[in-house]
């Protein structure tokens, strides 16, 4: 099934994307409202939460260029050393820019 990108077609496509995205925003909480939160479930939720971050970042590092790797490495190092997010993020972004400028 395809939709032509006419004026109404585009609106329909945007509506479809909106509904699908909304379903992902609402779905997790909706399902959880039927689950009894035992210590085991809470432990699952907490570990899963930080694992989301790792699961986004690790493939990003492996598929990224040298600049991407430099950015993540610098951010990680500064964050572990000083625990100040903003300087760590700023330095990471600068590292990506610099490495890409040089390489």
């Amino acid at each position: 099934m395809t939709i032509e990108t006419t004026t109404t077609g585009i609106l329909a496509l945007i509506a479809i994307m909106t509904v699908v995205t909304l379903a992902t925003r609402f779905g997790g909480v909706f399902i959880m409202s039927f689950v009894r939160i035992s210590p085991r479930i809470e432990s699952f939720i907490n570990t899963m939460a930080s694992s989301v971050l790792i699961a986004i970042i690790v493939p990003m590092a492996f598929s990224g260029d040298t600049g991407a790797v430099a950015a993540l490495a610098v951010t990680a190092a500064l964050m572990l050393a000083f625990r100040k997010p903003l300087p760590a993020i700023g330095a990471g972004i600068a590292a990506a820019g610099l490495v890409r400028y040089w390489v």
């Binding site: 995205t21 925003r25 609402f26 939720i45 989301v52």
Partner: peptide
């Protein structure tokens, strides 16, 4: 791509 929202939302449920 947006299915991560499911897990993110669930983690805020408590």
């Amino acid at each position: 791509i947006n299915s991560r929202h499911l897990l993110m939302g669930a983690s805020l449920y408590p």
